[in-house]
Design a binder for these strands. Structure first.
Length: 281
DNA sequence: AACAAACACAACCGCCGCAGG
DNA sequence: GCCTGCGGCGGTTGTGTTTGT
């Protein structure tokens, strides 16, 4: 038995795309869109399978693709996000406009992984590296290979007794740059999906630390993301997102983060300020 | 100049989750 | 609930280019 191949192999071309094929694909998609990738090559007159067309379009031909070398900032972002998300390249790519998951995956394997392994040994006196090594010790007890931290299921009950909830008034959202900051509180329902575990830290400590300066810094690194599929827009804050689809409150949610990633979540937030890691990690 | 090794990146493969029948 | 087809994802491979000897 076995699953049928994703496309009919006979007569279909493989390997590098020619510029003629690129042009055919571009003009077809510009004219008709790409509703059905499987049917597209036949309709467009391409001797390729649908998957190949999709990949070529997404990774190379899309008009919003940013070509050229990665900037230092982009590389740092990838490193941070990989620390937080693991090998979830598409999730990482979603936070780097114009970059594809394939491109990020390549740059990780060819540049960043090596650089990271050398810098961690060279800079072992660096403050933040010390913070990371704490995490790494925690991570060592979990699965290796840069996977996200998964809590032991047995720990769940105690782990989430320290949850906090972060909300923001919808009316304030348009002015959320610096002046208005989210409300941090202890949720009545500790199992609420919109609350976050503070790990071993008392939630009052977290609330006290999240002052105006803290949120000012977090917001200054945010960016607007428009989701064309849902027509929603979000304010991404490096792991936090303010989803404006709610009528009363705009919840800051850990979109694209697993609920049980509290350590990664807080680490990512707190490392935005030099003082916070020392205080809380 | 020739060759090998290392590198960079495009493309492929196989698996998975989801939606629809 | 099961089956099937599809899109999406991450791991891996293939191939062209660059660098070192």
């Amino acid at each position: 038995m076995g699953r049928a191949p994703c496309c009919e192999k006979m007569g279909l071309k493989k390997g590098p795309w020619t510029s003629e094929e690129d042009q055919i694909l571009i003009s077809y998609i510009q004219r008709y869109g790409h509703g059905n990738w499987r049917a597209l090559p036949k309709q467009a007159g391409l001797l390729r399978c649908g998957k190949s067309c999709r990949l070529r379009w997404i990774n190379y031909l899309r008009p919003d693709i940013k070509r050229g070398n990665f900037t230092r900032e982009e590389e740092e972002t990838i490193i941070d996000l990989h620390e937080m998300l693991g090998n979830r390249w598409s999730a990482i790519a979603a936070r780097l406009p114009g970059r594809t998951d394939n491109e990020i995956k390549n740059v990780w394997h060819t540049h960043l992984k090596k650089r990271l392994s050398t810098t961690t040994t060279q800079n072992n006196k660096n403050h933040h590296v010390v913070q990371k090594s704490k995490r790494q010790r925690h991570q060592q007890s979990c699965d290796d290979d840069h996977q996200v931290i998964k809590n032991d299921e047995d720990d769940d009950d105690t782990k989430y007794n320290n949850n906090i909830m972060i909300t923001m008034d919808q009316d304030d959202e348009e002015n959320n740059n610096n002046n208005n900051r989210p409300v941090v509180s202890s949720p009545a329902d500790q199992s609420s999906s919109s609350s976050f575990s503070t790990g071993d830290h008392d939630h009052n400590d977290i609330i006290n630390v999240m002052d105006d300066d803290f949120w000012s810094e977090v917001f200054s690194s945010g960016e607007i993301i428009n989701d064309h599929n849902t027509s929603n827009s979000e304010v991404l804050l490096d792991g936090l997102s303010v989803n404006n689809q709610f009528s009363d409150h705009a919840l800051i949610t850990t979109t694209n983060l697993d609920y049980d990633q509290d350590m990664d979540f807080w680490y990512n937030i707190f490392t935005r300020s030099a003082d916070l890691p020392e205080l809380l990690l």
